[in-house]
Amino acid sequence: MAVASSNLKNALIAVSAPLPSILFYISFLRQSNSVSPLYIWCYHHPLLLAFVLFFLNISLLFWVVGLLQNSHWMIDLYWTAIPVMLVYYFASHPLAESDFWRSRLVIFLTSVWCIRLSHSYFRRERWQFGAREDWRFTDMKQQYGQNWWWASLFSIYLSQQVFLLGNCLPLYVVHSKNKQLNIWDLVAASVCVAGVTIAYFADTQLHDFVIRNDRMKQLGQPLAPVLDEGLWRYSRHPNYFGEQLWWWGLTIFAWNLGCGWTFFGPLMNSLCLAYVTILVEQRMAKQQYRAEAYIRYQKETSVWIPWFKKSLARKEKEI
């Protein structure tokens, strides 16, 4: 009963959290004839307005909620929803201009990505809201100690504002330039679809592996130390690879419209994910039952990009 009550409470919090930005934007759209300075600024600065709303509603409000609950779980949930909210925001802004089909294609792809990632998130969390926060946040909380209350604003929220909005810049570009659909849009869409597909199957294979190990643990049987099947046979982090492929595919849309500078968004995100990869692998190697098998797995298997197994015997001979 307590779990159900907590889940309902967190669901209500999650649904209510973005309402200030949503209601403000709806009010802005209805004031089409307004001459107020606020309306004029919002009208002429759609990208800056997105940054301001993110800062006030996500970085600050979500941070306060996290402090009150002593758990910063909500930002992970909204990683799946914010890009969809942003693409509809950019598409509906009064200054928006774009090719009709490119806009619809990008909106559709972003929606598919959101559904895929949301499904993966809730499946991993056993269909609960706020059951736990990311283990990396918990580790940082221990590292920062009494300073965590203010350090969390920078290390969790402001940093992710930079990463997320940087990744989503192509969504703005697509809705700020009107150029006829061409072959590069199809290339971009193909890369995005490939990324979403790889990430879906990789996450599903990982989920099945975790479920099998949970059952083995309940039966008192030895756990499988390493997932070395499916996509995971060719990459140690195929889910990360698929996710990055999605963001780089989105950037091709912007590059095709003359805004290749937007590549810095996925580049920063990839560098951050490289660091996260190191943390994840260090954590795996510290678990006694899988340490030896995982170290061997590291030596044999590509980090991100799926590739054939390395010959460990040949490698040791070369060394």
Rank of each mutant, 00 (worst) to 15 (best):
L250V: 11
F241S: 00
S6C: 06
R123T: 10
A96P: 09
S27H: 14
V174M: 07
S118W: 14
L273R: 02
I75R: 00
T251F: 14
P18Q: 03
R236Y: 04
W246T: 11
A194V: 12
G145S: 10
R296F: 03
Y289N: 02
I198P: 00
E125Q: 13
P170L: 07
K141Y: 08
L186E: 01
I40V: 15
I82N: 07
E125M: 13
R30Q: 14
G66V: 02
L8M: 13
V226W: 01
Y88R: 09
R233C: 08
N178T: 06
N269F: 15
K315Q: 15
Q160R: 04
Y240T: 03
L61G: 00
F24M: 11
W248G: 02
L227C: 14
E97K: 14
A285D: 14
C272N: 14
A2G: 00
V162Y: 10
F24V: 03
N213I: 12
V52E: 00
Y25F: 12
S16M: 13
W79Y: 12
G249K: 06
I13P: 00
W148P: 00
L206M: 15
L279T: 10
L29S: 05
D228A: 07
Y39A: 11
V187H: 06
W304Y: 14
D185Y: 00
S270A: 15
E318P: 01
